[in-house]
Computed example of a mutant assay.
Amino acid sequence: MSLKQRLTEDMKAAMKSGEKTRLGTIRLVNAAIKQREVDERIELDDAAVVAVLDKMVKQRRDSVAQYEAAAREDLAEVERAEIAVIEHYLPAKLDEAAILAAIDAAIARVSAEGGGAIGPADMGKLMGVLKPQLAGQADMGQVSALVKRRLAG
């Protein structure tokens, strides 16, 4: 079952069981997916759906930080509840060791293709290889920091 189908089935189940928070969040996710499909005139696969979900989680984390800074814990709690529902559909997060292993593999791949040493100037190439591979499984900010650290030393 694709991720979009799973979301639709879970939306129906949430309607039947009366889970308003879950239902509202899944509707927001479906709307974001549909909007991207309409804008780009494509049918999203699971990887693209994961990217949409990842973006939604990032937006909500930013909102939580802003609400906490403004002492609006009530609004921050709503965002946290939405994050919990959305993260249910994301793949399990990788630990730092797994991310470093993926970075090492990407470095080997890029250096084999480019035929030379890898330095800080090759960060864009590495991130281009890593982003689709780690989408939804790792925070890309963390990946970027680890790539910089690996390239520096």
Rank of each mutant, 00 (worst) to 15 (best):
22 R>T: 03
137 Q>W: 02
125 K>G: 06
132 P>L: 07
23 L>G: 05
80 R>T: 05
128 G>I: 12
79 E>Q: 15
21 T>M: 09
47 A>L: 10
138 A>S: 09
12 K>F: 10
7 L>I: 01
126 L>E: 03
102 A>Y: 10
33 I>M: 01
124 G>F: 07
117 A>G: 08
127 M>W: 10
131 K>D: 03
26 I>M: 03
104 D>I: 11
101 A>I: 03
11 M>R: 01
22 R>A: 00
43 E>C: 09
80 R>H: 14
57 V>I: 10
138 A>I: 10
28 L>T: 11
128 G>L: 12
110 V>A: 10
134 L>D: 04
94 L>C: 03
19 E>M: 03
26 I>P: 01
88 H>T: 01
62 D>Q: 09
70 A>N: 14
34 K>H: 07
116 G>M: 10
15 M>T: 05
33 I>V: 13
106 A>N: 10
134 L>T: 05
132 P>G: 11
128 G>C: 12
77 E>Q: 13
62 D>I: 08
75 L>S: 12
87 E>M: 08
41 R>E: 09
59 Q>G: 08
140 M>T: 11
99 I>L: 04
12 K>E: 11
100 L>K: 15
99 I>S: 06
15 M>Y: 13
88 H>W: 04
43 E>R: 14
121 A>R: 15
31 A>D: 08
115 G>I: 12
79 E>L: 02
94 L>F: 14
105 A>D: 15
36 R>L: 05
84 A>C: 07
9 E>P: 01
9 E>Q: 09
141 G>T: 13
72 R>S: 11
105 A>C: 07
43 E>S: 15
131 K>W: 01
77 E>F: 12
67 Y>T: 06
7 L>D: 00
61 R>E: 09
127 M>H: 06
27 R>G: 05
59 Q>W: 05
85 V>Q: 00
127 M>R: 04
27 R>N: 09
45 D>C: 10
93 K>R: 13
101 A>V: 09
60 R>L: 12
16 K>G: 06
29 V>I: 07
27 R>P: 01
41 R>F: 04
93 K>Q: 11
130 L>I: 05
31 A>H: 06
7 L>W: 00
81 A>D: 08
32 A>Q: 07
97 A>T: 07
141 G>F: 10
20 K>A: 15
117 A>I: 11
127 M>Q: 04
62 D>A: 13
89 Y>A: 01
63 S>G: 09
70 A>K: 15
20 K>P: 08
50 V>D: 00
122 D>R: 14
20 K>L: 13
34 K>V: 03
54 D>E: 06
139 D>P: 04
8 T>A: 11
126 L>N: 06
114 G>N: 15
117 A>N: 14
120 P>F: 09
22 R>S: 00
63 S>F: 06
92 A>N: 03
123 M>Y: 01
118 I>Y: 11
41 R>K: 15
20 K>T: 12
96 E>I: 12
70 A>E: 15
48 A>E: 12
79 E>R: 07
109 R>A: 15
98 A>H: 13
74 D>R: 15
61 R>I: 03
89 Y>V: 02
95 D>Y: 05
52 V>H: 02
128 G>Q: 08
55 K>W: 10
